[in-house]
Amino acid sequence: MNASAQENRMELFAPGHRACHGCGMALSVRHILKATGNQVAVVTPTGCLETFSSPYGYSPWRVPWIHHLFENGPSVASGVAAALDAQGRGDVRVVAIGGDGSTFDIGFAALSGMFERDDDVLYICVDNGAYMNTGGQRSGATPTYASTTTDPVGKLRPGKLQHKKDLPAIVAAHGAAYVATASVAYRKDLQKKVKRAMEFHGARYLQIDTPCPSVWGFPSDHTLEVGRLGVASGLVPLFEMEYGNVTKVRKIKPITVDKYLRGQKRFRHLFADEQGAELVAKLQQMADANIAKYGLSSQSGGQ
């Protein structure tokens, strides 16, 4: 092995982790830590990231890292931040990185508590829209009409009927200084948002769309392509909010949602019959609403 390969192996999120092939989450974490540098401690609640990055004796984390439980990532992070502050080590910042199951669902109360207290933590949700660690069950972040193992397509149901929880808006409503969404498809943008978030103190939120080849059902080399299509369709709006106001959006040349949906097994049923076409039309309405709400279209000026 030569010196340069060694350098790669010395990255803050080192290789040897056990993420699936083409994991959008693993790639996100690599870039999150490139943006933060090593003056951070990371807290990760239970989930894919925790499992694939913490087999006993084989840790990819070259920053202090803690996993405790599923539903307490935010409160453990608050505790770490309070301790470092009490010890006069406020220069070491705390970043929590959790999946959508822990963030949107089981740890939601703790997340809300952390944002209400405005503890000095950057909370990053690496969102793959279901409980992948346990085989792809429906979460509050699962998008409408996606098929999951606990809300599967059947004769009576087309997958999830409800909306994806609008967590960025909920977090922003706590008065958070900085709330943003990013996609692993746009890593410079992702890194920029992490850096921007670190300029603030108090509780901040970043939600990263991290396509999952294994459960969304697409080839492992398409992770970023799927991510780009999601953003371009308007279903995954990328924006920044400061103190509750949208300050920046990533402009798109909108594509129709079918171009994003078609390549994923979890939406395959939408292209099976005419009923599916109606549902695609509804998803198109949701995308159009996002495009209008955030002013995403580069053709329309907007914000």
Partner: peptide, 25 residues
């Protein structure tokens, strides 16, 4: 690369086959 398995040496890119999982990204 999700597995930090591409490295560069004097502007030439190489794969770190010890870690590359072959995802194809």
């Amino acid at each position: 690369c999700p597995d930090s398995s591409v490295f560069v040496q004097e502007d030439v890119y190489y794969i770190d086959y010890d870690f590359c999982k072959g995802c194809g990204l």
